[in-house]
């Protein structure tokens, strides 16, 4: 004959379930309310001093297009008429025609400001993170165009596919509270 003292009453069973549901609700609520970066602690970012613009950011990311995009630090930009981030190294003419542009997707917009100055703005939905403009600006210009992981797109994978493929170990983990590593006009990050 079974021992009745070990049997759970219906009231006890329901009370236990309610307590468990309450605990889960509290944990879930806390998890939802905490910011994403705070959960992750650190996020992936590109160190622009190590980046060699190899092009793998555009091809290796699990997202399509990549979570890496060009960021323009306007404070560093010379607003050059002949911008080597925008134009091919030896452009046929300083026009926006396709044969003169370096960007394969036409993601940089060039706007006249005042002779001889032009403004260059990244059209982010078009940018695929290939780094060709960054290469041009860094080689001939002052490096105001820089590749960065955009955290409004990045899934912050535990093991970043681009970091795996990066030949110069430019991918690093940075605090989620300071998720970007940009070179500034003063040479600081």
């Amino acid at each position: 004959m079974a021992d009745n003292s070990e049997r759970m009453s219906r009231r006890e069973f329901l009370a236990g379930k309610v307590r468990l549901a309450g605990a889960l609700a509290v944990c879930g609520g806390v998890a939802l309310l905490r910011p994403r970066g705070a959960i992750a602690g650190t996020v992936w970012q590109i160190d622009p001093n190590k980046c060699t613009q190899c092009g793998k950011c555009a091809t290796e990311c699990v997202l399509g297009p990549s979570a890496v995009k060009c960021v323009h630090v306007h404070a560093m930009c010379g607003h050059c008429e002949l911008c080597f981030g925008f134009f091919e190294a030896q452009p046929n003419a300083l026009t926006t025609a396709a044969e003169n542009q370096r960007c394969p997707t036409g993601a940089i917009k060039r706007r006249f400001i005042e002779d001889p100055y032009f403004e260059y703005v990244i059209d982010e939905p078009l940018c695929i993170g290939c780094g060709k403009c960054v290469e041009g600006c860094g080689t001939f210009g002052n490096g105001s165009l820089q590749l960065q992981v955009r955290h409004d797109r990045c899934e912050n994978c535990n093991q970043c596919a681009i970091a795996d493929a990066c030949p110069s170990d430019a991918f690093v983990r940075v605090p989620a509270t300071r998720p970007y590593l940009l070179k500034s006009a003063e040479g600081e990050q």
Partner: peptide, 22 residues
């Protein structure tokens, strides 16, 4: 130049078309 512009447009149309398709 016209060929380059045409090809450039075709390439970009295909790429962003595939993206929209996906």
């Amino acid at each position: 130049k016209a060929r380059i512009r045409r090809l450039d447009r075709e390439i970009r149309e295909e790429y962003f078309g595939r993206k929209a398709f996906a």
